[in-house]
Amino acid sequence: MNDERRERLAEKRERKRELEAEHDPERIEQAREDRQRAETYLENVEGKLAELDEEEARLRDRIGGVKSELDSLETLRERRAALGDRLGALDSLYGEAEQLQGMYAQLRSELRQRNVEQLERMLNETFELVYQNDAYAKLELTGEYELTVYQKDGSPLAPEQLSGGERALFNLSLRCAIYRLLAEGIEGGAPMPPLILDEPTVFLDSGHVSKLVDLVESMRRLGVEQIVVVSHDDELVGAADDLVRVRKDPTTNCSTVERGEALLAAGATE
């Protein structure tokens, strides 16, 4: 046992010499410094870890906000796609509306030209009915309803160049022609509005007054059920179906109204 102890002691001493040979004071000092730096780093790293945790929390919040924005962007993309589809439909509808508008404008122009032609024909017919003289060849209307009167020699006249009586007859003819045009358009679907003539005999001689009676009768045959004529002319009074006479007292400045068949009879005997 002593021999074994001596051998083990010799081994230990040999190991000690080896360790002493391997011992490096500089490395130990370096290790101590590294340990000190590590301890200092560990002290500082806790604060850094806290900062990093806060930064991580901020980044997570930002990530959540970005995800929300991405969801909103996806919703906007879907909405843009839907709006694109709607825009395409509206473009198609707009094109159809343009075509319809063009067709309507063309149809309106055609109908207006047709109405102008019919009104011009009826105006000439009515003017020939009430105008006794043979000085004018025809009346012509443009698409803007501007009137030109042509004399027998073909020279044109503006309506302002006509005499007072001729202008009165022209106005009556134009109003009655418009009524005739309305009568053709209504075709019995609705009653014709009343025709009111206020002192139509102004500037007219007796011959044209009788023609005016013929004009009123022709308008009645066209379907104008109510024709009101305000006049002092006895010939028109005698042709009335119903008479309303208004008298004004110059003293009291009051008006009285008489109506009935007796007035018609009295007007016929006066």
Rank of each mutant, 00 (worst) to 15 (best):
S155D: 11
S155Y: 13
S155P: 01
P156H: 11
P156R: 11
L157K: 14
L157N: 06
L157Q: 08
A158Q: 12
A158G: 07
A158L: 08
A158E: 09
A158I: 01
A158K: 11
E160M: 08
E160A: 14
Q161E: 13
L162W: 04
L162I: 10
S163P: 07
S163Y: 07
S163M: 07
G164A: 06
G164K: 03
G165A: 04
G165L: 03
G165C: 07
G165Y: 05
G165I: 03
G165V: 03
E166L: 11
E166S: 08
E166Y: 12
R167A: 04
A168I: 04
A168S: 15
L169P: 03
L169F: 14
L169N: 08
F170E: 02
L172M: 15
S173N: 05
R175Q: 13
A177I: 09
A177G: 14
A177K: 09
A177T: 09
I178P: 00
L181D: 13
L181H: 12
L181S: 14
L182P: 00
A183F: 04
E184Q: 12
E184P: 00
G185I: 02
I186V: 15
I186P: 01
I186A: 09
I186S: 11
E187C: 03
E187G: 12
G188F: 05
G188A: 09
G189M: 12
A190N: 04
A190T: 10
M192Y: 06
M192P: 03
P193A: 09
P194I: 10
P194R: 03
L195Q: 12
L195V: 12
I196G: 01
I196K: 02
I196E: 02
D198N: 02
D198H: 02
E199Y: 11
P200R: 05
P200V: 05
T201M: 07
V202W: 00
V202D: 07
F203I: 00
F203P: 01
L204A: 12
D205H: 14
S206C: 06
S206Q: 14
G207E: 15
G207C: 06
G207I: 05
G207V: 09
G207M: 12
H208D: 08
H208R: 11
H208M: 04
V209H: 09
S210L: 11
S210P: 00
S210C: 00
S210N: 14
K211H: 11
K211M: 06
K211G: 06
K211Q: 13
L212G: 06
L212D: 07
L212E: 10
V213E: 15
V213Y: 11
D214I: 01
D214K: 14
D214H: 12
L215G: 05
V216S: 01
E217T: 00
M219G: 00
R220G: 11
R220V: 03
R220Y: 12
R220P: 01
R221G: 05
R221P: 00
R221M: 07
L222A: 13
L222W: 00
G223Q: 02
G223A: 07
V224I: 15
E225R: 07
E225L: 01
E225I: 02
Q226A: 05
I227Q: 02
I227H: 00
V229N: 01
V229I: 15
V229A: 03
V230N: 01
S231Q: 07
S231M: 08
H232I: 13
H232W: 04
